[in-house]
Computed example of a mutant assay.
Amino acid sequence: MTPSARLQAAIEMLDWIIAAARDNGASADNIAKKFFKERRYAGSGDRRAIRELVYAAIRRWGDRPESGRQAMLGLITEQPELRELFGGSQYGPAAIDADEPVTSGAQIPDWLTSRFASLIDEPEKIALFDRAPLHIRVNGQRSTDLEVRSAWPEATALALPHSYELPAGTQLEDKILFQEGAIEIQDLGSQAIAFAGAASKPTLVLDLCAGAGGKSLALAAMLPSDSKIIAADTDRGRLSRIDPRKRRASARNIETILLAPGQELESLAYLRAGCDMVLVDAPCSGTGTWRRNPELRWRMTPKRLEHTTELQQRLMDLGSEMVKPGGRLVYAVCSLLDVEGGNQTERFLDRHPGWREISIDLPIGRPYRRGLLLSPYHDGTDGFYFTCLEKL
């Protein structure tokens, strides 16, 4: 493909991504896979160049552009070499009109800028767009740290036990140790949340928003084999991914339960006041994962954020009903916004006077508003806020 044809393909892919962000459709990564599957003529070099153009635009614009073309036109100021590719050549984008609209603005939407936790200053915000590292967790039930370090001598030990960083781009899925469940790909921040949840050695755990089971698997590896972890979610597709993962990891103490949206309490009634620990890894804005999913900025609106925080409150209240006296509730969001973090903890404690904050002792993170804050700049992790609360 010519450079102009690559640019046109990037514009077309951006149009798909913009529409999906507006309509709450597929992720940018999934769209890219489908896009290239329909264009098998694009070689590996073409695909790499197109993706680089697409993600340059996604990372640059905080507000959702009107179109892929406008987004690319906006990049010309910073990448002037793009201008000559808008020449109207075959398979390339049309020539630029003098009065053509162009995307402009900051990397972070104006309406979000003031909502970040007070610890998140300008260097912190810039780091939200760095390339995310590759973190792994060694599964002690299937291997040892020594065996993993022997397989990947370039691995760097991280702050938590059994956690390592590998060079970006390291291929793992085709390796025997990965296939046998010796390691899991998991950001250090997610590992930290599971580590905090496992600290009290709970026997019965409810992972209320389990998704694909990353934190359930981490908890299973950290807790005794006679513990029981119930992974619950309303998303059948995501929950179905747990079974093959737990078999690979030999996590026999995980059970799954599919919840009906709005009827979660009925499905979980048998656990009421019976859990030693409930993890609420709640749906959120995803501001802490912009390094991996920068198009999330294009999906979030003030109205959606309001609905999300209402859901978070409901999930905290629901989770708290499952905790027995002396048990714990761990609330976590991959967000750096106060409205989803510290505000939620303080409001929960106002609504539930029979609870108290428990100090979280970890080698990473910063104490913040009755919880702990992790960020890419300070900790090298995805951005997280989480808290540990005890039922009196």
Rank of each mutant, 00 (worst) to 15 (best):
M1S: 14
S4Q: 03
A5Y: 04
M13G: 02
D15A: 11
A20K: 03
A20N: 05
N24M: 11
N24G: 01
G25Q: 04
A28Y: 00
N30V: 01
F36S: 09
F36P: 07
R40N: 12
Y41T: 15
G45Y: 13
I50M: 07
R51D: 08
V54G: 06
R60D: 09
W61S: 07
W61C: 11
G62T: 13
G62Y: 12
P65R: 05
S67F: 03
R69F: 04
L73M: 07
I76D: 01
E78P: 00
E78V: 07
E78A: 13
P80W: 03
R83I: 01
G87L: 08
G88K: 09
Y91Q: 06
I96D: 06
A98H: 07
P101M: 00
T103P: 01
G105R: 10
W111P: 06
W111C: 06
L119E: 13
E122L: 15
D130V: 09
R131C: 12
R131D: 15
N139I: 07
N139F: 09
Q141Y: 14
R142K: 14
R142M: 11
P153Q: 00
E154Q: 15
L158Y: 06
S163L: 05
Y164A: 06
E165P: 02
A168C: 11
A168E: 14
G169C: 05
Q171F: 04
E173A: 06
G181Q: 04
A182V: 03
L188I: 11
A192T: 00
A192G: 02
G197S: 13
A198P: 04
A198Q: 07
A199K: 08
K201M: 15
C209D: 06
G211C: 04
A212D: 01
K215W: 05
A218Q: 07
D226R: 11
D226A: 05
I230L: 12
I230M: 01
I230Q: 01
A232M: 06
R236V: 05
L239Q: 03
A251H: 00
A251F: 05
I254N: 01
E255N: 00
I257L: 08
P261D: 09
E264D: 12
E264S: 15
S267V: 03
D276K: 02
P283I: 12
C284D: 00
S285E: 03
G288M: 10
E295L: 00
R299D: 01
P302H: 10
P302A: 09
K303I: 09
H307I: 11
H307S: 15
H307A: 14
E310K: 14
Q313I: 08
R314G: 01
M316S: 12
E321M: 06
M322P: 04
G326T: 12
G326V: 12
A332W: 02
C334L: 04
E340R: 07
G341T: 08
N343H: 15
T345L: 14
E346N: 15
F348S: 14
L349C: 10
P353Q: 11
E357S: 12
S359R: 13
I364P: 01
I364W: 02
R366C: 04
R369Y: 13
L372Q: 10
L373A: 13
L374H: 02
Y377H: 15
F384A: 04
Y385M: 12
Y385G: 04
L389Y: 07
L389Q: 09
L392P: 08
